[in-house]
């Protein structure tokens, strides 16, 4: 059995766990814990402390694993461990929380430095009333026009599939260009 993995990263409460849950064929092995900080509790009740783990069986010989990184900064020591051997990565950004954009940019830069693998950025929660336009987010995140910034709703399977496919297309394109 061959296995490959992709990493889903992003700031706290960006929607990483939901993203994996939407496409994983197994219940996501989540290591969520109740949040102790009042500030973070205002955003959500539980957070991932080690990693989320989802699976997509491709065929008899191949399985894709999806790993979600813990969003809180104090667990960033896990990032490098999780990034090892990844095929590519997805940076989730909450489109309705511009205060997290800066952190998302920092995470993106760190992961790029860990691994020169293809990546895409998912502008999550595009269905939220106060979600930023993708074009505005591109400016705020200072993303080059070559980097794929995709509108996403992590609870919507079709939307998540699109993001995964775009990442795979990028991986294929890089392989074909000899990267």
């Amino acid at each position: 059995m061959q296995t490959v993995k992709m990493v889903v990263t992003g700031p706290f409460s960006a929607g990483k766990t939901e993203f994996i849950q939407s496409v994983s064929e197994i219940d996501v092995v989540s290591t969520e814990r109740k949040i102790s900080s009042d500030g973070e509790k205002m955003v959500k009740e539980a957070t991932t402390v080690a990693m989320d783990f989802g699976r997509i069986t491709v065929d008899e010989d191949l399985v894709l694993y999806l790993f979600g990184t813990p969003g809180q900064k104090r667990f960033d020591f896990m990032w490098e461990i999780l990034s090892e051997g990844m095929l590519g990565f997805i940076v989730m950004v909450d489109s309705a929380r511009p205060e997290t954009f800066r952190e998302a940019r920092g995470i993106l830069q760190t992961f790029r430095a860990y691994a020169p693998t293809p990546y895409v950025v998912a502008a999550n929660k595009q269905d939220a009333e106060d979600a930023w336009e993708v074009d505005d987010m591109r400016h705020a995140l200072r993303l080059d026009s070559k980097i794929k910034l995709l509108p996403c709703v992590a609870t919507n399977r079709k939307s998540v599939k699109t993001v995964l496919l775009e990442l795979l297309y990028s991986i294929l394109a890089e392989m074909e260009s000899g990267g």
Binding site: Q2, R157, I171, L172, E176
Partner: peptide, 16 residues
């Protein structure tokens, strides 16, 4: 083989 593997992943996700 690597390309084939990525293509299999694409096919699988499209079919989901």
């Amino acid at each position: 083989e690597q390309k084939s593997l990525v293509n299999r992943l694409i096919k699988r996700i499209r079919s989901m």
